[in-house]
Computed example of a mutant assay.
Amino acid sequence: MRDQKMTDFASVLTALRRPKILIRAARAGVVDYRRERDLRRLLRTVRFQANRPALDSLIAEENRLESNRTSGEATYSIQRHVAVLTALIAEARLLPAAGRPA
């Protein structure tokens, strides 16, 4: 079951289609990513999460942000979107090699 979840996560990441500028900004932010500090802020939790639950929460938040972006919601925050994408990229790098997208 664990390998299936990792494969599912790899599929989700490779299927993401976002504006190049968002992805470039997120990749640039990975060098400053600090897991404990950034997950606490992004997921609004005081509990430090394991990698998989954190990824699931980040994917859900990124989907919400993308929906807000594409629908033109006034509450959309590009800064938060970049931060969540940065966390997704950084967290994906923490996965075992079998769970990473090619």
Rank of each mutant, 00 (worst) to 15 (best):
R24C: 12
L95Q: 09
A25V: 05
Q79P: 00
R24Y: 13
T45L: 00
S77Y: 05
R80F: 02
I89R: 01
E91G: 03
R93K: 10
L94D: 10
A87P: 02
P101E: 15
F9W: 11
L43Y: 00
A26W: 06
A50L: 10
D8P: 03
R35M: 03
H81W: 10
G99C: 11
K5I: 04
A98R: 12
E91I: 04
I23L: 13
R40M: 06
D38W: 01
R52V: 07
Y33R: 01
M6T: 02
I78E: 11
R37M: 05
L42W: 02
I23D: 10
A97Q: 13
A50D: 14
L58M: 15
V82Q: 06
H81M: 11
L58Q: 14
L22G: 03
S57E: 15
L39P: 02
E91W: 03
L58C: 14
R93W: 04
R37G: 00
A102M: 14
R69Y: 15
R34F: 02
R24P: 03
N63Y: 01
L13K: 06
N63H: 08
R93F: 04
L39C: 07
A25N: 10
A15P: 04
T70I: 14
V46P: 01
R52K: 08
L55F: 04
L58F: 11
T7Y: 09
R17Q: 15
R24H: 12
I59Y: 14
E36W: 05
A50T: 06
Q79G: 12
R47C: 01
E61K: 15
L65V: 08
P19I: 09
L16M: 13
K20H: 08
P96K: 08
L42F: 00
G72Y: 00
S77L: 10
D38E: 13
P19G: 04
E62D: 15
L58H: 12
T86H: 02
M6V: 02
A25H: 05
P53N: 12
A98T: 08
R41A: 15
R80Q: 15
K20A: 15
R47M: 05
R47I: 08
F9G: 01
E62F: 13
M1S: 11
R64D: 07
D38C: 04
T75D: 05
D32T: 07
P96T: 04
K20Q: 12
R18C: 13
A83S: 15
N63F: 03
P19M: 04
L42I: 08
A26M: 06
A97E: 14
Q49I: 01
I78H: 06
R64F: 00
V12H: 12
P19H: 10
R52C: 01
A92C: 13
A83E: 12
